[in-house]
C-alpha cells in the first residue's frame, strides 16, 4: 500500500507515492528520477547516497521515503547555483578529485554540509568529517585538497 509523501526537495515542493519499505534513496532515484544520488553499500558505510534532511547530513539508504513527509531534502542536484557550478563542484573538477565518479555526489553533499556548519574547517576536520564517505579510486588526497580550495574560495 502506497502512502502520499510531501516534502521540499532542493527548494521546491514535491509530492510522490511511496511504499513504507522504500528508502528515500530509492524514492529519489526511481520515483523522482533524480539519479545523482548513488547507492554504494546500501547500509550506511560508504556515504555515496548522502543527502541533507532538514539540514542534517544523512545516508538516504537508511531513511524511509515516508519519513521525509514535511521535511526539507537537498540532494546533489540542489547544490549548483542555477547554471553555475558550486565552488565545491568546480574545485573537484579543477583538482581532478574523482575518477569513476560514483562517490562524488556523496562527497560534495557531505563537504557542503561541513562548510555550511564550519567554514574554517581545517584538513584534519575535513578528513574526520569525510570518514563516512568512501572512495576506492583516488586515495582521498585530491578530494581533501579540492574541499580545502573550495572552502578558501567560499570564505
Amino acid at each position: 500500500m502506497k502512502t502520499q509523501v510531501s516534502m521540499i526537495l532542493n527548494g521546491e515542493p514535491v509530492e510522490f507515492l511511496a511504499e513504507p519499505r522504500q528508502t528515500l534513496l530509492e524514492c529519489l532515484r526511481d520515483t523522482l528520477h533524480l539519479t545523482g544520488t548513488k547507492e554504494g553499500c546500501g547500509d550506511g558505510n560508504c556515504g555515496s547516497c548522502c543527502v541533507t534532511l532538514d539540514g542534517n547530513l544523512v545516508t538516504s539508504c537508511l531513511v524511509l521515503g515516508v519519513e521525509a513527509q514535511g521535511r526539507n531534502v537537498t540532494t546533489i542536484e540542489g547544490i549548483a547555483r542555477g547554471n553555475d557550478l558550486h565552488p565545491l563542484q568546480k574545485a573537484f573538477i579543477d583538482h581532478a578529485a574523482l575518477q569513476c565518479g560514483i562517490c562524488t555526489p556523496g562527497f560534495i553533499v557531505a563537504a557542503n554540509a561541513l562548510l555550511d556548519a564550519e567554514p574554517d574547517a581545517d584538513e584534519e576536520r575535513i578528513r574526520a568529517w569525510l570518514a563516512n564517505n568512501l572512495c576506492r579510486c583516488t586515495g582521498y588526497d585530491k578530494i581533501v585538497r579540492a574541499v580545502q580550495a573550495a572552502a578558501k574560495e567560499m570564505r
Binding site: 550506511g44 556515504g47 542534517n56 547530513l57 544523512v58 537508511l62 557531505a110 563516512n132 564517505n133
Partner: peptide, 9 residues
C-alpha cells in the same frame, strides 16, 4: 559513533 552522516540520524 559511526560517521558524520550516521550521527545525523
Amino acid at each position: 559513533i559511526g560517521g558524520t552522516a550516521i550521527q545525523g540520524r
